[in-house]
Design a protein around this nucleic acid. Sequence first.
DNA 1: GGGGTGACCCAGT
DNA 2: TACTGGGCCACCC
Length: 103
Amino acid sequence: MTPDEYVEAVLDLVERIPPGRVMSYGAVADALAERSGRASARLVGSIMARHGGGVPWHRVVNSAGRLPPGHEVEARARLRAEGCPLRPSGVDMAAAWSPEEGM
DNA sequence: GGGGTGACCCAGT
DNA sequence: TACTGGGCCACCC
């Protein structure tokens, strides 16, 4: 799998996250590990930072539910509009979603 | 080619 | 509860 295809796979998976639900970078990396053979939360993070413009990036948070630095206000607004459970620190990880659940 | 950096994560202190 | 250190892997200088 080429790095380019890996990016596509990440974006594709992010697009499948239902509204009001979220996924951690680590969860995305882990879910793609089976298909791509490589998994790295940092890698997913950098991919979102660079190519996340076309997908609901606000549904991807870190393992603590923290929102991406510099986009916290934006993400909060969008998540709130989708009915995602929000906490003062970020999102409620009870809203965590997994590909298995969504099929 | 070598080294620093980052929208990360986990374990230990 | 907060901070630190190590591991991770692609990108940029």
